[in-house]
């Protein structure tokens, strides 16, 4: 292990690139989450009705319908054929995320993300063990179970417990005991399973992962030759198994992070002091060779 690896995550990036560039996407992401939430809150709080409704279904400026496609899909398998408004809204959302990366929803929009991120921050601070780590595809199984339950009970089943819509609806309409569910997710991530909820269990994330399977917006490790093996990107990535194939690819292997699990959060771009990563589109196979590759790099990377 290099001395650099022992540095706190992101320290080197701050030193090399400055504070803003080392936190850019994190700040933009928080801003985006705040914007998406406040758009819904402007109405009830200040009487500015730009967006009405909730994340499950909304109406923007009185005309644009948006619908959560997973909620609508559950309704469909439960036996209700929705009206055109809801279908149009779901289609718009599906197309948007199919282009932008399904799980961009998770990192840029979802109101539970700050909760689980906070849990992870504290988890890190307290140096807790990573705990129960179910397989990544558990969430796909859960998604299947949710749809099956919807079909068998004839209800939109996940909405009975979905902490995402419950928190969002709670903030816009009134929380009730939904805060308890949110607290549960926080405690689960803190004590039971590191990055457990968003990373392993949430069926909404699983669904959006499927939606963005072939999405256009991708992170590339085009300058992977410059990687000095500090491991900061792995430490900061909520789905760090997506990095290796791109970063450790040899020769002409694609530098694109093509895993549908990638949430396009951009933190790897932030924390890399040598700017290995960048946002691009999926048809951009460029691999930049560094002018003077450090001779010891390949060995270090195997660490």
């Amino acid at each position: 292990m290099k001395a650099k690896t022992a540095l706190p995550v992101g320290q080197e990036a701050i030193r090399e690139k400055g504070w803003w560039k080392a936190y850019r996407f994190l700040i933009l992401r928080r801003a985006s989450q705040a914007v998406f939430l406040s758009l819904f809150l402007l109405g009830p709080w200040f009487g500015l009705w730009l967006v009405e409704g909730t994340l499950a279904g909304s109406r923007t400026l009185g005309v644009l319908p948006l619908t959560d496609p997973l909620v609508l899909l559950q309704g469909l398998v439960a036996g209700h054929w929705p009206e055109l408004t809801a279908l149009t809204g779901a289609l718009i959302v599906l197309v948007a995320y199919a282009l932008l990366g399904g799980r961009s929803y998770c990192s840029w929009v979802c109101p539970i993300n700050p909760v689980t991120d906070a849990a992870h921050w504290l988890h890190d601070r307290l140096d807790l063990p990573k705990g129960w780590q179910p397989k990544r595809h558990t969430r796909l199984w859960l998604l299947g179970a949710v749809l099956a339950t919807s079909a068998l009970t004839g209800t939109i089943a996940w909405e009975l417990v979905n902490p995402i819509t419950m928190l969002h609806r709670g903030l816009v309409f009134g929380l009730g005991f939904a805060w308890a569910l949110v607290a549960l997710v926080f405690l689960f991530d803190l004590f039971v399973s590191r990055r457990g909820w968003c990373g392993h269990l949430c069926p909404v994330g699983a669904f959006y992962g499927l939606v963005g399977h072939k999405s256009l917006l991708r992170v590339t490790a085009s300058k992977r030759a410059a990687c000095d093996g500090c491991m900061d990107c792995f430490a900061v990535c909520p789905e760090n198994h997506v990095i290796s194939p791109a970063l450790r690819g040899k020769g002409a292997e694609t530098p694109l992070i093509l895993s549908p699990d990638c949430t396009n959060c951009g933190r790897c771009i932030d924390v890399c002091s040598v700017d290995v990563f960048a946002f691009t589109h999926r048809f951009d196979p460029r691999i930049e060779a560094t002018p003077e590759p450090s001779p010891d790099a390949p060995d270090e990377m195997a660490a």
Binding site: G43, G57, S58, L72, I156, R169, F173
Partner: peptide, 16 residues
Amino acid sequence: EKAFLAACIRCGLCVR
């Protein structure tokens, strides 16, 4: 009620 629970997405637009 039974059909309603398959159809209502809980968006709150009726409330608004």
